[in-house]
Design a binder for these strands. Structure first.
Lengths: 251, 251
DNA sequence: CGTTTAATTGAAAGCAGTCAAACTATGTGG
DNA sequence: CCACATAGTTTGACTGCTTTCAATTAAACG
């Protein structure tokens, strides 16, 4: 039922290689180096901390299955979700080079994590340009998504903002074959959505039903479908360019 | 090639070296490699495009003097400023590994830019781990600031949001000795501020005067001072941890 | 100067937030 | 299997922060 819990078939880190390789070329040596990275595997429950704000970053976490998210909190206790992560993504790129975590990373669903020693990872990146490049691409894409979120939160009204986020999830999940027919399971509460969008849960609820009444989304519990995807895209003003799908050719 | 221990301040790229070195250690070879990067220098006027959304990225731009900013635009034409950049910063880190620009970078003031060929920069990063690491740190700090902006836009009210942005500028400028006594010249219109904060220019104006009436800021044209910095920090809920000032020690 | 751009102010409207309560789904222990 | 507890969703009424619209004043500029 939860396809995002599917473990990677042959090797733990195969999903990382696949994720990196989707955008940047890796040679045989790069692949072998990545797959032979020392790591320990661990399963964690929803809302468990993977990285904790203010602490010294530990080993680098790679998400093997399940979803994770990043969040920050104001001095008043208000929370902002700043990103969501899908299987194959590295959760510590942001802290790999920093000596103090500036935000928290938590499990959204039950997750499997591979922990790779920071130093080893840095060495491999330094020794193999292909890997350094691939990690650079992954990092740049993450930054691009962050910028789009800023635009979303700062400059779109609530309904459009929600629609845009739902479109992004749809595209990203579909790319990993974690959804079918533009429909997917969204394992979050409306409060979580509000914290990702800079809205209150009450208003998120109203916008969800507004979209539903317009026939732009169809829900069943927390599963969501898009009966009219073109219309949905249009309402959201969505363009996937910022996701940089596809190989990034060297120029 | 000079063999001085310290680069001449007259060298164009010395400010880049200083910026990188402030957070990550560079050895003599790293410094020399950076300073001898081939580059062309150019002066640009306010609002000139350094990178244009949708285009194939050109050579990598390093900001030598003046300020620059990044922006994105919704399909409806609403603008969001997503970052501001100070002298010494690299403006194309985000596009160094991507084949299509997902946002625009523009000059805020009159700026001097050094253009370094992408391929050369990538080669130097691959060959010299110290440089690769330093660029990684710079990139991570930029991402951290982006996350704080998301939190700011999404979860703080207008007055606090403005105060926070002003505090960030103060800290970053002071670090470069571009301000005195927590006071500085902010060369932006209120409309620009609004686009950076997700607010309308009218409301920015009201919040500015609200802060002024409370004695938290003092203005003279576009120069700004903080008569009571501790109170200002407090109102903004500002903590500079996310700026990652200081050397990032390897762990 | 005259022209343009930016800052300021007021009044009114509206989107989103707040508060409170009811409802639903899910899970637990008896 | 039911009673109960808990977490999450839904709804309504009301408030208020921010926007919108419009006009005026001030500053920057050629």
């Amino acid at each position: 039922m939860h396809r995002h819990h599917r473990p990677s078939p042959r090797h733990s880190l195969a999903i990382l290689v696949a994720n990196l390789e989707a955008r940047a070329p890796l040679d045989e040596g790069d692949r072998a180096a990545l797959l032979s990275l020392p790591h320990s595997r661990r399963t964690m429950s929803p809302s468990a901390y993977i990285v904790r704000d203010g602490e010294v970053p530990g080993p680098c976490a790679v998400l093997l299955s399940g979803f994770a998210y990043r969040q920050k909190v104001t001095s008043d206790g208000a929370r902002q979700i700043v990103s969501i992560h899908l299987p194959g993504e590295m959760l510590d790129l942001q802290h790999l080079h920093l000596d103090c975590a500036d935000h928290s990373v938590q499990a959204l669903t039950e997750v499997e994590i591979a922990y790779v020693p920071r130093q080893t990872l840095r060495e491999v990146m330094a020794e193999r340009p292909g890997i350094g490049r691939a990690v650079g691409v992954a990092s740049a894409v993450e930054a691009s998504i962050a910028r789009e979120w800023m635009l979303n939160i700062g400059r779109r009204d609530a309904r459009t903002r929600l629609a845009h986020l739902l479109c992004e999830f749809a595209m990203r999940l579909e790319r990993l074959d974690l959804s079918g027919d533009y429909g997917y399971e969204l394992p979050v509460t409306q409060e979580w959505l509000g914290d990702a969008l800079g809205l209150t849960p009450v208003h998120v609820n109203r916008m969800i039903r507004a979209l539903a009444e317009e026939g732009l989304i169809a829900r069943h519990h927390r599963a969501i479908r898009f009966p009219d995807w073109p219309a949905m895209r249009d309402v959201a003003g969505f363009s996937e360019q910022y996701l940089h799908f596809g190989a990034q050719v060297a120029v």
